[in-house]
Nucleic acid binder design. Structure first.
Length: 369
DNA sequence: AAGGCGGGGTG
DNA sequence: CACCCAGCCTT
């Protein structure tokens, strides 16, 4: 299981991969190089946090948006958290944005760390991100271990279950001590573009002579697939007061979409779809929470249901709206452009938008009175 | 050590 | 449509 130490072919592997990287490496906006050949720590940090769970193709858009909004750590630190979340809107795993903001505050107070250990102490910075910033921006000899690197190493040594300990040791042993930053980027680029999870493009790989998975004839068998947690079914109801562009919004708290704003929702864990009775009961609880329980004959219309997957949860939310013409309760309405919303909430609002637009498009008279 | 946390992609 | 990806934090 252990990689040979010292790995006999390391020198050849390094030169082959770095040669490939020089020719085939990706040109990415956060790879701006200073005169000293090093990356800007702020840009690297933002990019690496963004790429923690986001693919490069999508990350680019958010990166540009984020850097335009917050060009420096000072600008990020003095912005309100809500503005940071707005720039992150739709990107998911919003704790990353909250932690970026917190960490920026720490750096303005205490200075920008220059070492792996210093970066590791910041909120939202784990071993991967600390190693990336330390190596790319400061030239520190730290091997990154992300999903790409783990897969490349798993195949290189034909280890089908690469544990954290094994993979980190293998990455450390292979790291090019003279060019740690370039080496780290090279391994990750190989994993992202050639040594991909399914159908690896071994014909384009610079390391076939060193790859034991390639030698086995079935490189795609490495690493073995991970067992996944089951997706929990969550049902619920949401209530739209106001319009899709200017609804009543609540700020969510807790870990799920915390800090973002959205329609008031009442969620329940249920294996099967809610009956209309259960739906109405949930809606009543929601009204009560909003202080609408006292109002008699508060009519709502059911706009439809929204399905939304969040990796670990499958949400199915019935969206209701106060009927037009009903007295508007005393709840503040806010333009959605002024608040960060999750995609779930944008979907629910789109339902109201469709409800308003489509009848007119098809010439029905049953739209808003 | 295990589970929670968004949002995508592909076959 | 089922199944894939994935770093950090909390518990």
């Amino acid at each position: 299981m252990k990689p040979p130490a010292p790995f006999s072919g390391a020198t050849e592997v390094r030169s082959a991969l770095l040669g490939w990287f020089a020719a085939q490496g990706r040109d990415l906006p956060w790879r701006l190089t200073g005169d000293d050949g090093r990356r800007d720590p702020y840009r690297v940090w933002v990019a690496e946090v963004l790429l923690q769970q986001t693919q490069v193709v999508r990350g680019r858009v958010y990166y540009e948006r984020f850097l335009t909004a917050f060009p420096s750590v000072q600008a990020l630190a003095r912005a309100p958290q809500e503005a940071v979340l707005k720039a992150w809107e739709g990107c998911g795993y919003y704790a990353r944005a909250r932690n970026l903001h917190r960490a920026a505050g720490v750096m303005v107070e205490q200075g920008v760390p220059r070492t792996y250990e210093g970066w590791l102490a910041l909120p939202g910075v784990g071993p991967y991100t600390a190693a990336a910033v330390a190596s790319l921006a400061y030239g520190e000899r730290r091997a990154v271990l992300d999903g790409n690197v783990r897969r490349v190493l798993s195949r290189l040594y034909a280890v089908s279950v690469p544990t954290d300990l094994w993979a980190q040791q293998a990455a450390d042993a292979l790291l090019d001590p003279d060019r740690p930053g370039a080496w780290n980027e090279a391994v990750m680029d190989l994993g992202a573009t050639v040594c991909i999870p399914k159908s690896p493009r071994c014909g384009e790989c610079p390391l076939p002579a060193h790859c034991q998975a390639f030698a086995s004839g079935e490189p795609a068998r490495y690493p073995a697939p991970k067992v996944r947690a089951e997706v929990k079914q969550v049902r619920g109801v949401a209530l739209l007061v106001g319009t899709s562009g200017r609804p009543y919004l609540e700020q969510r708290s807790g870990s799920l979409l915390g800090g973002l704003w959205g329609l008031p929702v009442e969620l329940v864990q249920a294996e099967s779809a809610l009956t209309s009775m259960e739906e109405q009961a949930a809606l009543e609880r929601l009204k009560l929470r909003l202080g609408l329980g006292q109002i008699e004959r508060l009519n709502t219309e059911r706009l439809g249901t929204v399905e939304h997957t969040m990796t670990h949860r499958q949400l199915s939310v019935a969206v209701f709206r106060l009927r037009i013409g009903e007295a508007v309760p005393d709840l503040p309405l806010t333009p959605v452009t002024e608040r960060p919303l999750s995609r779930l909430d944008h979907k629910m609002l789109a339902l109201a938008e469709a409800d308003r637009v489509q009848p007119a498009l098809f010439g029905y008279g049953a739209g808003e009175a």
